[in-house]
Amino acid sequence: MRALPVRRIATTVLCASLLLGTAGPVVAAESDSPQGSAQEAARAPVPEANKLLAQVKTLGDAGGVLTPVTDLLTAVLKADGGQLPAADATKLAAPVKDAITKAAATAPKAPETSVAPEAPALPQTPALPKALPDEDKAAAEPKDDALKALQTAVDTLLKSATGGDVTKVAGAVPPVLTGLVNVVAATLLGSGLPAPDLAGLSALPKAPALS
């Protein structure tokens, strides 16, 4: 009577051993499966993520300037006679100035030249003439120039939109639009963003060389 339970116990132990022996390789195989490799790849960072994030931020900065300026233009063009109450003009001007200031702070600057050691004083010579305006403009940072020009155009528009002369408003709007286009173009040219590949699109002009 006792032989039957012993036999059953031995059979149960044998089955358990076989199950345990096959379970190990199965677990290892799952870790080496294509699904496991895909999970590991999903946890890895995107190649050149920092470079791509910098390009995304550049576009975001440009958009930050576009939105408040276009809001101002829309308000002026929809107003009767292009005239805004002083309070409305001030309210619309504040985000424009903030956006331009922020974009100018993030614009790349030309590298500073190292200062040479002091040399013995030389006899005074006649002062050299100042650089021509075109040379100054070519040596300046294009995006910084575009932002300054845009702010000047916006100031002129605000003055016209609160001065009571409709004809001045009509003449002040196009420079603001041109200023926006210049900001976008300068941002794209100096940001390392990929070149446009739209069929039939003319090539963007090259940025002026910095002296």
Results as ranks from 00 to 15, higher is better:
11 T>S: 11
205 P>F: 02
143 K>E: 12
203 A>R: 09
22 T>Y: 00
182 N>K: 10
17 S>I: 06
92 L>T: 08
128 L>K: 14
164 G>A: 06
149 A>Y: 01
186 A>P: 06
72 L>N: 10
96 V>C: 11
195 A>F: 06
198 L>T: 13
55 Q>R: 09
166 V>A: 15
47 P>T: 01
46 V>Q: 11
180 L>P: 09
6 V>T: 07
112 E>K: 15
9 I>A: 09
100 I>A: 03
51 K>F: 12
59 L>A: 08
82 G>F: 11
159 K>W: 02
156 T>Q: 12
31 S>E: 15
36 G>W: 08
46 V>N: 06
116 A>E: 14
104 A>H: 05
75 A>T: 05
207 A>I: 03
107 A>R: 01
63 G>S: 15
92 L>R: 07
40 E>V: 15
15 C>Q: 06
200 G>S: 02
33 S>E: 03
114 S>L: 09
208 P>V: 00
37 S>E: 13
153 A>T: 04
160 S>C: 01
23 A>L: 13
131 A>T: 08
206 K>P: 01
199 A>R: 11
56 V>P: 01
102 K>Q: 15
180 L>E: 08
198 L>W: 02
84 L>A: 01
205 P>E: 00
18 L>N: 01
43 R>F: 11
10 A>H: 07
99 A>F: 07
117 P>G: 09
149 A>S: 13
208 P>E: 04
58 T>H: 08
11 T>Q: 10
25 P>D: 10
205 P>V: 03
49 A>N: 05
147 L>S: 05
118 E>Q: 13
67 T>M: 08
104 A>Q: 09
178 T>V: 14
139 A>P: 06
38 A>F: 05
124 Q>E: 15
124 Q>M: 10
116 A>K: 12
19 L>V: 09
191 S>C: 02
136 D>G: 11
41 A>V: 04
27 V>F: 13
127 A>D: 14
111 P>H: 13
67 T>P: 03
98 D>P: 00
144 D>A: 15
54 A>L: 12
114 S>Y: 06
83 Q>E: 05
148 K>W: 07
94 A>C: 03
153 A>P: 11
66 L>Q: 13
35 Q>C: 02
124 Q>N: 08
188 L>P: 03
16 A>E: 04
54 A>R: 11
164 G>R: 11
124 Q>H: 07
86 A>K: 12
18 L>G: 12
81 G>T: 03
59 L>H: 07
204 L>G: 07
9 I>C: 01
8 R>P: 00
30 E>N: 12
62 A>L: 07
160 S>G: 03
51 K>Y: 05
112 E>I: 09
200 G>T: 09
46 V>L: 14
194 P>L: 10
93 A>C: 08
149 A>F: 10
46 V>H: 02
193 L>C: 10
44 A>V: 10
174 P>K: 04
31 S>V: 11
67 T>N: 09
148 K>G: 13
28 A>Y: 06
